[in-house]
């Protein structure tokens, strides 16, 4: 796997995360970080997120059929599948953009027919989008700081007059945004308009915006789509480092099976809206149905006669 020097540095950093990333971390985070291995070890831990019998169709097209999925705290959980397998629909159901026709979503034990999108940030869930969803007219810093907008308590009048908690609030939000920018090596572009960044950096800035709120659950919709191999492994390193630093649980959708195998703890495979496999990367790799879905079933006409 080709790895740029830059990416290699990050991978190292994430391997030695406790020493390197502990600088400047609030105590609470360090605490959470210390707890993570224990959480991971608890194989039977109650799932942070569980989908139960999710069904979704658009008109006559079945996007998802009877999908179950459980996500344990602290794991990186990948959902893969060929084009049109229903991966993005699944993320949209989890984040409440779509309402499932059947089944429900269990988040931290609470049951939802439709997850309330407006309350998502308060619930500690953040997500990125397959097609970039940055605010083009804002600087990178402001984009990332906007990930904390849901905590803003001051109103517009206070902000205009600059009274009350406004100033402190803004300083705190920008400070946190700066920390995340530094973590993802985006400090150099912090003042540029998000729309002017190259594609790979925009993807990373979106990850920063999702991370700044220190979500308990992070949903990544094709975070490596359209990237070069080098950028992909770099992004994978950032995702892993983010999980380690913020003790967040990651659900990610990806097209590129190779990257996912190395990154994820467990993988679910969708095909035509159904889950056809679920397990560790090794289990999934050797699953005949997965191989069939991805590579196609070998036809009887091996010789190519008649084509």
């Amino acid at each position: 796997m080709p790895i740029s020097n830059h990416a290699f540095g990050t991978i190292e950093a994430s391997v030695y995360a406790p020493e390197i990333f502990a600088q400047g971390l609030p105590a609470a985070q360090r605490q959470a970080h210390g707890d993570r291995p224990r959480q991971l070890a608890a194989e039977d831990a109650a799932p942070l997120l569980a989908l139960e019998g999710i069904g979704l169709s658009f008109g006559g097209v079945v996007a998802l059929a009877d999908v179950d999925l459980s996500v344990r705290p602290g794991e990186i959980r990948a959902i893969i599948g060929p084009n049109g397998a229903g991966k993005s629909s699944l993320i949209n159901v989890i984040s409440g953009v779509y309402r499932a026709d059947r089944g429900h979503v269990r988040l931290y034990g609470a049951r939802y027919a439709q997850v309330p999108t407006q309350r998502l940030a308060h619930l500690g869930v953040a997500r990125t989008f397959q097609n970039l969803a940055l605010f083009k007219g804002l600087s990178v810093l402001d984009n990332v700081a906007s990930g904390l907008a849901y905590r803003t308590r001051s109103n517009f009048a206070g902000q205009i007059l600059g009274v009350g908690r406004t100033r402190r609030e803004q300083q705190e939000q920008r400070g946190r945004a700066d920390q995340v920018l530094e973590f993802l090596h985006l400090t150099d572009v912090r003042d540029r308009l998000a729309g002017t960044l190259p594609y790979g950096l925009q993807k990373r800035a979106e990850l920063a915006r999702a991370l700044v709120a220190e979500p308990r659950l992070l949903l990544l919709d094709e975070p490596m789509a359209g990237m070069t191999a080098g950028e992909k492994s770099e992004m994978a390193a950032y995702v892993r480092a983010a999980r380690d630093r913020f003790a967040t649980t990651v659900v990610l959708i990806e097209h590129d099976v190779g990257v996912v195998m190395g990154l994820s703890d467990r993988i679910a495979v969708l095909d035509y809206g159904r889950k056809i496999a679920d397990g560790t990367p090794d289990e999934v790799r050797n699953d005949q149905r997965v191989i069939d879905a991805y590579l196609g079933v070998a036809s009887d006409n091996e010789e190519g006669a008649g084509i």
């Binding site: 407006q118 953040a126 997500r127 940055l134 605010f135 007219g137 907008a149």
Partner: peptide
């Protein structure tokens, strides 16, 4: 900045809690 966020992408704005 919330105004601009809604202008540029209102789905993303809603998801991050604006």
């Amino acid at each position: 900045r919330n105004f601009i966020a809604i202008r540029d992408n209102d789905t993303a704005a809603r998801i991050i809690g604006i």
